[in-house]
Amino acid sequence: MSVLELKNVSKSFGSGGGTTEVLRSVDLSLDEGEFVAVVGFSGSGKSTLVNLLSGLLFPNRGEVLFKGEKNVAAGPDRGVVFQNYSLLPWLSVYENIRLAVDQVFADQSVQERDQRVRHYVDMVSLTPAMAKKPHELSGGMRQRVSLARTLAMSPDVLLMDEPLGALDALTRAVLQDEIAKIWEQEKKTVLLVTNDVDEAILLADRIVPLKPGPSATLGKHFSVQLPRPRDRTALNHDAGFKELRNNVVNYLNTVRKESKTAQLEARQKPLPELPQLKPADLRAQ
């Protein structure tokens, strides 16, 4: 059963003569409880894809279906981890998460909500920084607050736009395991945008490459059939893992080359054919 679906979706920005098409005819369906990873190049439209899925943007053509309904506006049942963190700078770490928790769990008692916030702050190891404002945090710390905020909302669908991009390898590994654990325990539907193929394979059921833009489309899907729970160190020696990684990386390289030559060709395209008209000598008449 698909929870969230893009049907033949195209998205352009700008109006009139200055429009650029970012996504063209994208079809993507997230099944209930599925973990999908989107990998792609910078500027290809991954964030745009996330915004369409979350209901923060609406398509120019095609439709987005959320639980069978068309073009539903954003809401807390589709949690987003924004690529640029989007923390409120006047609120502390605790208050940023508390705002979300208060909104989603309004029917719970104050203690329960407080407990919930503290649990997720602890999960991303930010308890010592709980009272700090975002501008006092490093980029990686902000990213963790943003992740904690979205996880604390316990959304049905979790959309994460490069949520671990600014982190060091060790913290990254810890949070990858956390995400895997939460997904396995709570059986959420997850879409993870990442530029790290290893991360995609470690976490996802299915890897969907986004081809380079403009007018990006989704490439061929790679299904990840490695058994769970997946262990990072064991995977490194696993033949299936190595093969899959090679396949994905090779595929990405191929589509990049293709798009480059396509762009070159577009630039070198001969002038459009003019209608066949013979110049007439007007003086003769």
Partner: peptide, 27 residues
């Protein structure tokens, strides 16, 4: 715009949005 997106994802009602997002940001 990012802060307004947060308000949208949280589905804050108008009054809460003004109180928690708009006023502090414009203060």
């Amino acid at each position: 715009k990012d802060h307004l997106n947060v308000a949208k994802v949280l589905k804050l009602d108008t009054w809460t949005r003004i109180r928690k997002i708009i006023i502090p940001s414009a203060l």
